[in-house]
Amino acid sequence: MQFLPPNKKLILASKSPRRQQLLRDLGFDFEVRTMEVNEEHDASLNGVEIAEHLAEKKALAFKDNLSEDEIVLTSDTVVWCKGESLAKAENEEHAREMLQKLSGTSHEVITGVCLLSKEKSIVFSDITKVYFQEITIEEIDYYIKHYRPFDKAGAYGIQEWIGMWAIEKIEGSYFTVMGLPTHLIQPNLMKF
């Protein structure tokens, strides 16, 4: 089955093993190419604006290095809690603070995606609402010690122990929380 527009190659610009596995599970053939991109953004942006801005910024870094037949896919995931973006944790204390903020409340996980070729660019995002039950400091410390969630927005992975232990429910796509709104990839790729 053909999952890409004819005569196009997909480039995934992400080191994330989760995004790579999700694209493989969707049936795509792709190449992984990454570049370091400064993820600073204007502090006035809201969650959706941050996710889409950073996904597009990552894609634009590839603009001059794409061949005519390539489409690059970039994405960025933001945990938006009480009007604040919870980025990747810098250390154990930072992760602990974020997880304490998420405990006993709900937040939004927003994944922005950019698809970029030489001729075209599409930016979109998806939002999933996540509800955490109350978690103790001992549970938080156990999770941090055993799972080292420093590469994840909000310092947690839904697919890990904390997702099974602390998440009561979600409203939206599970895969958006993992870092890629899988249901939106194919329809948007076919616009190329």
Results as ranks from 00 to 15, higher is better:
180 L>N: 11
29 D>Q: 13
40 E>F: 04
44 S>L: 13
123 V>M: 07
44 S>M: 10
141 D>N: 08
88 K>L: 09
156 Y>N: 00
138 E>I: 04
78 V>M: 12
127 I>N: 04
62 F>D: 10
173 S>P: 04
92 E>Y: 01
171 E>N: 09
176 T>K: 09
122 I>D: 08
182 T>S: 09
1 M>A: 11
3 F>Q: 15
82 K>C: 00
34 T>G: 08
187 P>W: 10
139 E>I: 03
153 A>Y: 15
54 L>T: 08
175 F>T: 15
82 K>L: 00
143 Y>Q: 01
85 S>D: 14
1 M>S: 15
121 S>K: 08
152 K>A: 07
50 I>H: 05
34 T>F: 05
12 L>F: 02
74 T>G: 00
106 S>M: 14
96 R>H: 15
44 S>G: 02
40 E>M: 02
111 T>C: 06
42 D>K: 03
128 T>I: 08
14 S>K: 04
152 K>R: 09
1 M>R: 13
54 L>C: 05
156 Y>I: 00
66 L>K: 01
46 N>M: 03
132 F>L: 07
4 L>H: 06
140 I>N: 14
19 R>H: 11
126 D>C: 03
127 I>L: 09
191 K>M: 11
176 T>G: 03
191 K>V: 04
69 D>L: 03
78 V>W: 14
5 P>M: 03
47 G>P: 06
20 Q>C: 04
107 H>M: 04
165 W>V: 02
143 Y>P: 00
185 I>H: 08
6 P>A: 13
120 K>T: 11
26 L>C: 10
112 G>E: 11
180 L>T: 04
1 M>E: 15
117 S>D: 06
145 K>Y: 05
172 G>S: 07
173 S>T: 14
157 G>H: 08
39 E>C: 05
